[in-house]
Design a protein around this nucleic acid. Structure first.
Length: 232
DNA sequence: CCCTGATTCGC
DNA sequence: GCGAATCAGG
C-alpha cells in the first residue's frame, strides 16, 4: 500500500481527532501502526501526549528539542468511549465562507459564526449540559495554532451532514461524536453543529462531560460510547 | 503482559 | 520516503 493523497488526508483527520495509531492503521488497512506513526511524523503532525517522556534528566547540555511545543493533553475525555479520545483542538477562525460562484441557496451550515476562542475577543463561554461553566480551551492554552489553510467546500447539503458524516467531513464546527464502529460500513460521525468550544454538539457534550454529582444522586448511566461495546 | 507513541536506521 | 525494530512510559 502506498500513501495516496486520500490516505494521507484520512491519516491527518484521524490523527487530529485523537484516534490512536493502531486505530488509524486498522482503518486504512495495509499498514502497521508503526507506518502510521512514522508517516504522521514525516507529515509534521504534532506529537500527541506520548506515554514516553522525552528526557528524564538533563544529561545533555543541548538537547534543544525545538518542536516540543505540543498542545496540552485533553483535560477531559468522553466518559464512555473505549478508545476514542477527541481532544478539543482550538484552531483559528476559518476563512470566510467562499461567496463566489453561485450556490443558489444559502447553506444553514454556517449561520452563526461561532467566534473562536481568542485572547483579544469577547469571551464566549460554553455551558455544559450539567450546568457547569467551563473555560474555553483557548483560555487554558493559548496555542494559536498556525492554521493549516482549511479547505472549504462551497456548500454541503445539510442532508449529508445529518445522514452520514464521514471522517473526511470532519471539521472544527461539527460534532465529532462517533457512531458505529470504525471500519464498519455505517460508521460515521454525529455531524451536528458543535457546542462552541467543544468537539461535540450540545447533546453529545452531555455524554462526554458529566457534571460531578453527589454519589447518591448519580445514575448508573449508559456506558455505551458509540454503538456499544466492541465485541471481538 | 497489554497498550501507547517516539525514535532509529537499513532499505 | 518508508516502516520494522526497538525503546520506554502507563
Amino acid at each position: 500500500m502506498s500513501w495516496t493523497d486520500e490516505r494521507i488526508e484520512t491519516l491527518r483527520k484521524m490523527w487530529d481527532s485523537g484516534l490512536t495509531a493502531t486505530q488509524i492503521a486498522e482503518e486504512l488497512g495495509g499498514v502497521s501502526r508503526n507506518a502510521v506513526i512514522g508517516k504522521a511524523h514525516r507529515l509534521g503532525l504534532a506529537s500527541r501526549p506520548s506515554p514516553v517522556k522525552p528526557n528524564s534528566a538533563e544529561t545533555k547540555a543541548a538537547p534543544a528539542p525545538a518542536p516540543a511545543a505540543a498542545a496540552p493533553p485533553p483535560a477531559l475525555a468522553p466518559a464512555a468511549p473505549t478508545r476514542v479520545e477527541v481532544a478539543p483542538t482550538p484552531r483559528p477562525a476559518p476563512v470566510a465562507p467562499p461567496r463566489e460562484a453561485a450556490p443558489v441557496e444559502r447553506q444553514e451550515t454556517v449561520p452563526a459564526p461561532a467566534p473562536t476562542p481568542r485572547a483579544d475577543g469577547p469571551v464566549l463561554r460554553s455551558v455544559g449540559p450539567g450546568g457547569f461553566v467551563r473555560q474555553n480551551p483557548g483560555e487554558q492554552a493559548p496555542p494559536a495554532t498556525p492554521a493549516p489553510p482549511r479547505r472549504l467546500v462551497p456548500a454541503k447539503p445539510s442532508k449529508e451532514i445529518e445522514g452520514k458524516t464521514s471522517l473526511l467531513d470532519l471539521n472544527d464546527r461539527i460534532c465529532k461524536w462517533p457512531l458505529g464502529h470504525p471500519g464498519e460500513p455505517d460508521f460515521h460521525f454525529c455531524g451536528d453543529k458543535v457546542n462552541p468550544g467543544f468537539p461535540y454538539c450540545v447533546d453529545h457534550c452531555g455524554h462526554a462531560y458529566q457534571a460531578q454529582l453527589p454519589r447518591r444522586d448519580r445514575r448508573p448511566p449508559p456506558p455505551l460510547p458509540y454503538g456499544g461495546p466492541r465485541v471481538r
